[in-house]
Design a binder for these strands. Structure first.
Lengths: 348, 348
DNA sequence: CTCATGAGGAAAACCGGTTTAGTATGAGTG
DNA sequence: CACTCATACTAAACCGGTTTTCCTCATGAG
């Protein structure tokens, strides 16, 4: 207010020190530990600060204290897709609740123009939660070099890689058995495209684990998997619709479509409805995740229930333990899932 | 790797300078502006950095460069509620897309234990987007004192308050006219509770503007508004269900419920379904926002379509203009809305 | 009276980068 | 040959806080 000619500059701790007649140290104490100075000094300093409009620079504080008070969530896809997938959203919610509890903010980190690697190099956070990460990835070594704590959800458990997962292979095996027991033999599988974090060896990626589960059930039933039975989809409803149309156009239309994501499954259902087909009378559809929408849509979706919010919560709690140095070793959490049988799978 | 006995410390620019035989300045140039040094020096420095596992500290860089490379979104409620409301989520998506474009991260800022004021004081961001903010609020003066650019969505336009809005009063007026034209006279209004940012004078808050629109339409039809006709709800589906039950228990059950939020309206619909009542045959329900779910639910919801993602986009674009000092004055954007007439409103 | 103690506060180092100001060297120029 | 200029580099200041170290002085105990 006083200095209205200059382009407006915030007062610093030094200004308050000078103006109040005390030292920088005293000003710092007035804000952080008033017991260290006299009441009179504290009062005068705070009054001066108020008068000059001084608010301690958060960046300078955090820099000095070597902390960010924020944890990062590395978006698996562009913002749009990531948050539009209810499964991912629930994960974010779980993380966010924990952040709230600890008084931290949650930084959403989109893959930058540059690259994900660059995003991780420059991320201003105390720890990072990622989805679908595997040890071989470049960003892992970046996080390690930065000594940045991290936890991955739906990634590959490893000594170097704290993780939160369900038993994807077993869950997939079980739901495929359900499909087979319902009498289906002509089945199309819809896998998920490995997203942003492309990796050389994806043997242990979630889509691969699930695929192994499917295949195991199929081969126990004496069925081999023909590559033409497998399609790949982005994890979006739009892509689910596209895939649905593709499937309906197949000359040998399957009796059941097994997807790795409810949001894709719902896309398929919509495609069927648009084509005038009935689910499950004309074609059965199976999902994965059990998002809220899956119990609302008609027909209700047969799927694997996995507690997304809980995954986020556990990952975040583990991350905070690491940030606070309460944990030294890499923890691996495997949480329960449930097979949910509903209308979209019909007995032949 | 070399120093495995000590508790692991990251090398700093000074270490690289010493180890490579060049100065800190040279190391800085090697990473930021290689043209300023010789190729040989650059090569040696980068090689040393690689060998020692040096990654420039983002915090120190940002501090030195006086920037955060992140913008903040002040959550209007706890994380859980904010992101579970599809309207808010779309706003976040719109903001996120712009952040992505500019290579910024998006920091979600929950109201801290401390207080929202404390959260804003210590937010490590280059600018802030808020919802429902009004000039009188304490956080506004904090942002001004911090010289932190900000834009509010669904807040009160003001010389001090850049904003993105629709014409809430007119939209509400129009949808209420629709209700009245359909013959309804026994109407209950469900307003929204003013959230976290309590304010002394809320004359211009969005709920109040909408209420004015409703009242104008009502009085034009010769109807006065009895306070008992107005209920207040949190902006969550759960609270919508509760409100719905409350309404159904009224002795003089209304023929139409007009809400200020689709998510609340959907809650009411669910409450009606649970009670075995038909919407709209037994009771009509009207919403606001036109979230995606509103066109999926049965009955489809009569509502006001407002472009949530676009609101987020515009707010973020304006904010970046302010951050980059391209705009000096406070901008106010008012964008179009559309009245959407669908099944949930029945003609009497 | 002497000495230990503790309170209150200041000076300076520190966090890890960027940037300004300045130096040494060698090439080009009239 | 003296002068200018560009190149390649360094030292030191700087960003705005926190924290360590140290000084001074008043107080109370022995």
């Amino acid at each position: 207010m006083e200095e209205n000619s200059t382009p407006a500059k915030r007062p610093t701790i030094k200004d308050i020190a000078r103006e109040s007649g005390y030292s920088k140290t005293a000003v710092s104490f007035a804000f952080n530990d008033p017991s260290r100075i006299s009441e009179k000094a504290c009062r005068q300093i705070l009054e001066t600060a108020e008068r000059l409009g001084y608010i301690p620079d958060p960046m300078a504080r955090n820099f000095s204290l070597r902390r960010h008070l924020s944890i990062g969530f590395l978006l698996p896809q562009v913002v749009q897709f990531s948050l539009q997938n209810p499964y991912t959203l629930q994960v974010v919610l779980g993380i966010g609740n924990v952040c709230e509890k600890y008084g931290y903010t949650l930084t959403l980190i989109p893959p930058l123009h540059k690259s994900i690697t660059e995003a991780v190099r420059s991320a201003a956070v105390d720890g990072l939660i990622t989805m679908g990460m595997q040890v071989e990835m470049e960003i892992v070594s970046v996080m390690q070099t930065r000594l940045l704590p991290y936890v991955t959800i739906d990634g590959t458990p490893d000594a170097q890689m704290p993780s939160v997962n369900i038993d994807d292979e077993q869950a997939s095996y079980e739901i495929m058995r359900l499909v087979l027991e319902a009498g289906h033999r002509n089945i199309v599988l819809v896998s998920l495209s490995e997203d942003a974090f492309a990796s050389p060896t994806k043997a242990e990626s979630v889509p691969n684990k699930r695929m192994r589960g499917y295949i195991r059930a199929l081969s126990e039933a004496g069925l081999a998997l023909d590559p033409s039975q497998v399609l790949v989809s982005e994890c979006t409803m739009e892509d689910g619709i596209t895939i649905g149309k593709t499937i309906l156009a197949l000359e040998n239309r399957p009796t059941c479509v097994v997807t790795m994501s409810d949001i894709v499954a719902i896309g398929c259902i919509l495609a069927c409805k648009q084509a005038g087909l009935s689910v499950p009378d004309d074609i059965s559809i199976v999902g994965f995740d059990n998002i809220d929408e899956s119990s609302c849509i008609i027909p209700q979706l047969t799927t694997v229930d996995q507690p997304a919010k809980e995954k986020g919560r556990l990952a975040a709690e583990a991350l905070f333990k690491m940030i606070n140095k309460e944990t030294l070793e890499s923890v691996h959490m495997e949480i329960p899932y449930r097979i949910i049988r509903r209308e979209s799978l019909k007995k032949l």
